[in-house]
Design a protein around this nucleic acid. Structure first.
Length: 756
RNA sequence: GCGCCCGUAGCUCAACUGGAUAGAGUGUUGGCCUCCGAAGCCAGAGGUUGUGGGUUCGACUCCCGCCGGGCGCACCA
């Protein structure tokens, strides 16, 4: 039960009484009336804005109306005090037993505390993860996965009928590449020497397992056969294997989808034609020519007759092609058909969790959904910000080429599922997030994960001690629900209780606003309140959880705190059986209290207790997008290797106790110190991007580039296409170095010194 | 150029979709262990919420204009 809603209804009831006896005019709209905890606890337990929002329609001034309401409220036995304050807030306090009875609610509801019927059983489809089956889940995917899953949990808890769905693409060229890679690894598994994985195939080692599995299942069946024969069966096998792998990975962080959909079924089921026909019948299809994209120099743009969908009728900026020039489907068509399928399955509300880089997905899909549902279905997209992975404070380079990806599995093994989930939820979804391996496992209070876990550990500790103190006492939630909680009435205790009473409000607001991170904020606040209460026990022994003379009362509070830990974003149903739903945390001390108090050594707060996975982290690329896997080789920015820098050799022998800080030696460039040097700032596929970036840079670093000119160097790299290199010059070698240093410091662009 | 998102303490972020004196952590200053876990707690200092207007009882929140940043803008996937 949400006690705030309860009193909101109570207030509305009072107002209705006032209407009934003529104090207020009839027909008032109460929908904006809210009851909330006041921002300042000193103001009271609860506050309502009723007088302010109803003043105008009621033809009274807010304070006048407030006074009327206060008079009514004061007659209620549950309300101890009420008054009008500020611009017209009505603040009120409840009698203590009202609060302490919340504890009984919590204990009897258990993990269902905070459930509500807000959603009224409405069907919602939450689609998230949706990683294509071409590789394992990696660190960049995790955030969207966690956010989507938690949102689904919250919606479910709030009374929606939620379906967790996963959609994967198994019909494009990517899965063919997957099949070819699998075939190669299959040959390898049958002891063929395959050498390096050729460009265009997936280089990762995970494909070895697929090859092995295939060899185990089919033996030498496919050796020497033509691709035409093996492509389809091996593709199916690989897709299945990869999906199994992904599902296992997801299970590691407690994510299970109910429905898996795939593109192939959509395509082969003929849905595309069906959807097209429907749109045609609605007269939303025509053949026409689109204007060229604005503001973007397109050298190779030429007008073409295309099959277009009148999406602009549904708020899109322009109509969109559904078929390519050659008559085949455009890539958005399967997605549209897939959403049609969802609509047909009865969803009026669909939520997609995507990476921020899919910027215009919603623009493209919303018109189609509107058209195909007759305006009855709604699609929302949550865009998740990027994750910057750091190891020991150093950004981790992410490159598929070298197979250097941090997989979800590695991440979980390193920091644990709970910490991962918590951390991924610690910021608003669309913001960028720094995920520092060292910080996540750091055991200090600047690690919110630990801070919350520590509070939980203390709860466990109390229960453990309670069992020791009173071996015969039942400390299960059910037993504690019978505790005489009315005796909990000190201000300190009630403060904690009020905090717990607020949980249902957080659940609702987080679900409504699609902001699962509010859960972690709540937990942090709750933990903070808990720690504060704990320490009060030092000054005042009557505020301890365990009071030897009073075994009935003591542990009750702890259990509530413990119950709320469930809120840790995981599925409620998984914890049906509970004393205290346990979140992973140390249940035993890892640091002992010294016998001689007064000089306890505490680790420095900035220090870490984490041993990094890799000691040779590479810098540079620092953003991870939950993006689609792609075969290597596409459009890679080609940069010459930096002169003078060798990759660190592994077998450098150095004694561990003599740690040498590696000296950064900047190799002296073999360039004369006169104006005969350019700095190369980037390399692009199209000319307009070069110009655009140059303008940007000039604006951003006027001091650096003010006097320099732009030079564009065109290069043809065999097999890789044409590149335009952006260079600035000429200048001296020293100045060039300065520029590069400054750019590096600003994390802006790469910078290479080149000769004239 | 167009569209979407963002700009809050020195730093990293909140602020319960319009509420009261904008809060936490970090850093800094001081205090608290004979006591349920001191990896904790308490207190001090730190702000014209990028900027200029508007809407109203009331704006970090909504609207408009600027400034600064991110992402997206193909018939590619």
């Amino acid at each position: 039960m949400n006690i705030f809603n309860y009193y909101r209804d109570k207030n509305v009831q009072l107002l209705e009484e006032m209407v009934a006896n003529g104090e207020l005019p009839a027909g008032l709209d109460y929908s904006r009336v809210k009851v909330e905890p006041p921002r300042e606890a000193a103001h009271g337990d609860m506050a309502t804005n009723a007088a302010m929002v109803l003043a105008k329609p009621a033809g009274k001034n807010p304070r006048q109306l407030g006074d009327l309401l206060v008079a009514k409220m004061k007659k209620l036995p549950e309300i101890r005090e009420a008054s009008v304050a500020g611009p017209g807030f009505v603040n009120f306090r409840l009698v203590n037993t009202e609060w302490s009875s919340v504890l009984i609610d919590i204990l009897s509801a258990g993990v269902h505390y905070g459930d509500s019927k807000m959603g009224k059983g409405e069907k919602v489809n939450v689609e998230y993860v949706s990683v294509n089956p071409t590789g394992p889940m990696h660190a960049g995917h995790v955030r969207g996965a966690v956010i989507g899953d938690t949102l689904a949990n919250l919606l479910e808890k709030s009374g929606f009928d939620v379906t967790r769905e996963y959609y994967f693409n198994d019909a494009g060229t990517q899965v063919d590449v997957l099949a070819r890679t699998a075939y190669l690894r299959y040959r390898e598994a049958l002891s063929e020497n395959i050498g390096e994985v050729p460009e265009g195939l997936y280089p990762g080692d995970y494909m070895k397992d697929v090859g092995q599995a295939l060899a185990k299942r089919d033996g030498k069946k496919w050796l020497g056969k033509d691709e035409k024969e093996w492509l389809v069966p091996i593709r199916d096998f690989s897709v299945r294997t990869m999906m199994d792998m992904i599902k296992q990975d997801l299970a590691l962080i407690g994510i299970t989808h109910e429905v898996f959909s795939n593109e192939r079924e959509v395509v082969e089921g003929g849905t595309l034609d069906k959807v097209f026909k429907i749109l045609q019948d609605m007269d939303l299809i025509y053949t026409g020519t689109l204007p060229p994209p604005k503001g973007k120099e397109m050298e190779d743009w030429e007008p073409a007759e295309l099959t277009l969908f009148r999406s602009s009728k549904f708020g899109d900026s322009s109509d969109r092609p559904l078929k390519k020039r050659d008559g085949t489907w455009a890539y958005i068509m399967p997605d549209i058909a897939y959403h049609f399928d969802k609509i047909q399955r009865g969803y009026k509300w669909m939520i997609n969790v995507l990476g921020k880089d899919h910027g215009n997905y919603l623009d493209k899909m919303r018109p189609a959904v509107a058209a195909l549902s007759g305006g009855k279905a709604r699609i929302d997209v949550m865009f998740c910000g990027m994750v910057k992975i750091l190891k020991d404070g150093v950004p981790v380079k992410f490159s598929k080429r070298s197979g250097n990806i941090i997989t979800l599995r590695e991440m979980i093994e390193e920091v644990g599922a709970d910490a991962t989930r918590f951390f991924m939820l610690s910021r608003t979804p669309d913001s960028e997030l720094e995920f520092d391996f060292a910080k996540v496992v750091e055991q200090t209070k600047d690690n919110p994960v630990f801070y919350v876990q520590y509070a939980h550990a203390r709860c466990c500790s109390v229960l453990r001690n309670a069992k020791e103190l009173w071996p015969d006492t039942d400390v299960s939630a059910a037993a504690l629900a019978k505790t005489d909680v009315k005796r909990l009435n000190s201000e300190e205790e009630l403060k904690l209780v009020r905090m717990m009473a607020g949980w249902p409000r957080y659940v609702e607001s987080a679900a409504e606003a699609h902001e699962p991170h509010r859960v972690t904020i709540y937990l942090h606040d709750l933990a903070s309140e808990f720690h504060a209460f704990w320490n009060k026990g030092s000054d005042d022994t009557t505020l301890r959880f365990l009071i030897e003379q009073d075994k009935e009362l003591s542990p009750a509070l702890v259990v509530f705190a413990g119950i709320l830990w469930y809120a840790y974003p995981r599925g409620a149903e998984k914890y049906s059986d509970m004393d205290v739903p346990v979140v992973k945390a140390d249940t035993s001390p890892v640091k002992t209290v010294p016998a001689d108090p007064g000089g306890m050594e505490v680790p420095h707060q900035d220090s870490t207790v984490f041993d990094p996975l890799q000691k040779n982290p590479a810098a540079e690329i620092e953003k991870l997008l939950p993006a689609q896997e792609e075969p290597i080789n596409k459009d890679v920015d080609i940069k010459p290797a930096k002169p003078g820098l060798k990759s660190p050799t592994k077998d450098v022998k150095s004694s561990p106790d003599k740690v040498e800080v590696p000296k950064v030696v900047v190799a002296k460039p073999a360039i004369a110190a006169s104006g005969d040097v350019y700095v190369q700032l980037g390399s692009y596929h199209d000319m307009s991007a070069v110009k655009r970036d140059w303008e940007k840079l000039k604006k951003k670093f006027p001091d650096l580039f003010g006097t320099l000119d732009m030079k564009i160097e065109k290069v043809d790299l065999a097999g890789k296409g044409t590149y335009y290199r952006l260079q600035a010059g000429t200048t001296t070698a020293d100045h060039a170095k300065e520029i590069c240093a400054a750019l590096k410091a600003a994390h802006s662009v790469g910078c290479i010194v080149v000769r004239k």
